[in-house]
Computed example of a mutant assay.
Amino acid sequence: MRVQRLAAALLVALVAGCGPAAAATDERVPSFRPAPLRPYAVGVRQFVVDPDGPRPLPVTVWYPTDRASPAEPAAPRPDAPVAAGRFPVVVHSHGLRSLPELHAPLTTRWAAAGFVVAAPAYPRTNLRARDFTRADVRNQPADGWRLIRHLVRLDARPGDPLAGHLAVDRFAAAGHSAGGFTTAGMFTSGHSPRLRAGIVIAGGGSAGSFAGPVAPLLFVHGGADPVVPESVGRAAYARSLGPAAFLSLPGQGHGEYLTPGRPGFAQVLAATTDFLRWTLYDDRRARDRLPADALLPGVTTLTTRALPGQPRPA
């Protein structure tokens, strides 16, 4: 569960831009603006959603703080002030017997690129779960939506560090393995249009996934995955609606391509960030960079499905 190799010469599907998020609470905080040109330093905080409920949901949040400089340490700073402005939000879901912090090579880099990344530790599938139950994955899409609603409330809560900093109409969902199935399950019929894009890594879809509203989707899969066969991911890609891309890593397994230093890591990181900048910041330059950033001869292949009338990437 680490960073993924995303491919995305993504077909062209325009995610319509919206105005500033509606839940602003502090007029001193600038409204939503274009994608940042330079990286941020990263802060981190933790909280629990519904701590007294039947499914407490511990959450780790990485977010942009003041501008990065070469002298700064790479480690996120606990409870550092959030940078000025509003930032799109990515809900990142871990796989079986994993934890949010095991995805830090990916999530912290997304935060540095100008996103708030909220990663829940699911109650019965995380590494430390006392009553681990694989079947509980079916309940996790609802947990993801519970987290989204909680974040929308935080943005409007006076005094909360995230208040006024979340672009609450610009969410994406992403996840690896069981977290990929969780992500797919959040795109059911009638889901809120707040959820604008999805990234499914080494996962697939279940019944009811990928219904409207249509959102761009990116699938990433190792060609020799022994845990979730690539055919499962390709079947989900075939069933998805609207613009979609499938990035395959021939000969690779269930997630080694998500590890810094492994073949394709740099391309995965760049392409993933491009995808999020395109779909959440309406950054068309990032969309146009996707083909070059995603593809590495001998390491990745890419299949795309464009909207009618739109050109396919070369």
Rank of each mutant, 00 (worst) to 15 (best):
R284A: 00
D288V: 06
R287S: 01
T273E: 04
L269E: 15
L290Y: 01
R289G: 05
L296W: 11
D274I: 00
A294Q: 14
P291N: 04
A286T: 08
D293E: 14
R277S: 01
V299Q: 07
R284Y: 00
D293R: 15
L302C: 14
Y281A: 06
L302V: 11
R277D: 02
A292E: 12
G264T: 08
D288I: 09
A270W: 00
F275I: 06
Q267K: 11
T272P: 08
L302Q: 10
R277H: 15
T272Q: 09
R284Q: 05
T300S: 15
D274T: 01
L276R: 04
L295D: 04
L280H: 07
T279F: 02
L302S: 13
D288G: 05
R289N: 11
R285E: 05
P291S: 03
A292D: 11
G298P: 15
P291W: 05
G298H: 07
A294N: 12
D282R: 12
L296M: 09
A292S: 08
L296Y: 12
R277Y: 01
R284F: 01
D288R: 08
L290I: 14
D283W: 00
L296A: 13
R289A: 10
A271I: 03
A270M: 10
A271C: 14
L295R: 04
G298R: 05
Y281P: 02
F265A: 13
A266F: 09
A266Q: 14
Q267G: 09
T300V: 12
G264S: 10
D288T: 08
Y281K: 03
V299A: 06
L290R: 02
F275Q: 06
D288P: 11
F275W: 05
R284M: 02
R285T: 11
P291F: 03
D282I: 02
F265N: 09
V268M: 12
L269D: 15
T279G: 09
L276P: 04
T272M: 13
D283K: 00
F275E: 02
A266S: 14
D274K: 00
P297E: 05
P297I: 06
L280Q: 01
G264K: 09
A292H: 14
D288Q: 13
L290D: 06
L280P: 03
T273C: 08
Q267D: 12
T301N: 10
L269C: 07
A294V: 14
T300N: 08
P291L: 07
P297W: 06
F265Y: 15
A266V: 15
A292R: 13
L276G: 03
L269K: 07
V299F: 11
V268I: 10
F275N: 03
T300W: 11
L269V: 14
V299L: 10
R284D: 02
D282M: 04
D293Y: 07
D283A: 01
A270I: 05
R285S: 13
R277V: 00
L269Q: 04
T272F: 06
A270H: 04
L276D: 01
D288C: 06
L290N: 00
Y281C: 03
P297H: 04
R284P: 00
L295T: 09
F265G: 10
Q267I: 14
R277L: 15
Y281M: 03
L280W: 03
G298F: 10
D293I: 13
L295M: 07
D283Y: 00
L280A: 05
L296T: 14
Q267R: 12
R277K: 12
W278G: 00
A270V: 11
